[in-house]
Design a protein around this nucleic acid. Sequence first.
DNA 1: CATTCACATGACTGCATGGTCATATAATGA
DNA 2: TCATTATATGACCATGCAGTCATGTGAATG
Lengths: 223, 223
Amino acid sequence: MPTPTFFNLPEAKRDRILEVSLEEFASNPYDRVSVAQIADKADIAKGSVYQYFEDKLDLYRHLLELASRAKTRYFSEHVSLGGEDLFEDLETLFRAGTAFARENPRYHRLAYRFMNSSVRDQILPDLRDMSEDFLRGMVESAHARRQIRSDVSADMAVYFVNTLLTEFGTYVLKHSEGNWEELAMESTGSIGGASWWGEMIEELIRMIRSGLADGSGRDGWEG
Amino acid sequence: MPTPTFFNLPEAKRDRILEVSLEEFASNPYDRVSVAQIADKADIAKGSVYQYFEDKLDLYRHLLELASRAKTRYFSEHVSLGGEDLFEDLETLFRAGTAFARENPRYHRLAYRFMNSSVRDQILPDLRDMSEDFLRGMVESAHARRQIRSDVSADMAVYFVNTLLTEFGTYVLKHSEGNWEELAMESTGSIGGASWWGEMIEELIRMIRSGLADGSGRDGWEG
DNA sequence: CATTCACATGACTGCATGGTCATATAATGA
DNA sequence: TCATTATATGACCATGCAGTCATGTGAATG
């Protein structure tokens, strides 16, 4: 946790430090991020960083905390799951996740890097993946509702959805090199409406739906 | 490239050095691997490493080269694609890829780490993904043969398959913690026969098939 | 034996890093 | 005005790193 001193800072300065740090940790692996460089770019002395945070890891953790909070907030504001149709809910999640990644590319890259970071287990000692647990719940209850084909185990179904979901935000980011920032601004409002990646999500969901749906029922296609 | 001196070494010593290096680079991100530590574990002087390799990157590159060669060899020996049925060919690729990862877990982890490594572009300046290009070819020709649904773009279809393929080897590795080595030995022979992950591949292929197949034809289910 | 060549070695250099701390500066309040 | 408290600072430290090199060793060659 940051020190009280950090929170006493004038907002502008605090934001500057966070901005610079975020940019740095989002663009480089943990080991390649230098505290000295952050201090430099934020126009403060290196010693000051240690007046605000216990150490480098503490700063990193705080950024992750902010990212997590932002995403939670975003989802709680934009997402409400029906809980009846798995594929509808998945689509909602995909759209929200992708929109968040587009509107907060640095947060997204930060979190993405974290997943394979060298300090992952120092920060998240229990290495369970929360989003995976969540998806598992959805999939299993859908399985009980016979919305999922029975010739596929829950494990594989979860792997299937989770993998596609996790990588998709990054895929979108990679395929819109450079012009994130402006595009991010332009696409706010309706989530994943008419943008080019909105169409991609539709296609992806189509594939997931046919791939996962119970073939015996009428669930293979759009209702 | 390693120096001539390295190739003049007694085989045992050479192998020891490679083994230790491989273990190190497969288990840690590039920046966390220490040449001093490698030398230590391999029972040679640090200076010697630099008599065998130009620098740390050179050693790393050589390991990747060996991994690539091993995988190429493995595929050329175990894989022959019909080129007629996309899904059959995909299943063959999945099985071979997974089997390779199981029999050469360190090579697999090395390659996996490399994909997001901080020195990726120093080693592979053109950042094209060869396996993705290959898949793209398969998918596009299958598209031409109408084996793939027309309401999904080639890009998304490739993303769909490539993502699931790329992550699967790692998924299998993660879910067999600890006892790789013995299991690897036990499962050689027929590729992905009766092992627990053979079943998983079947399920995965089932999902991919239904997800990707052209719904208008008779291609949605096993032939 | 003497010379030459291939290889082995670890002390050493230079550098960057994370982190500390004595000191300086500014703000607060009596 | 003076004393106290909060904050800012950069020189400094210990550590670890990649990479170098003068010296040593030992085998082969004449």
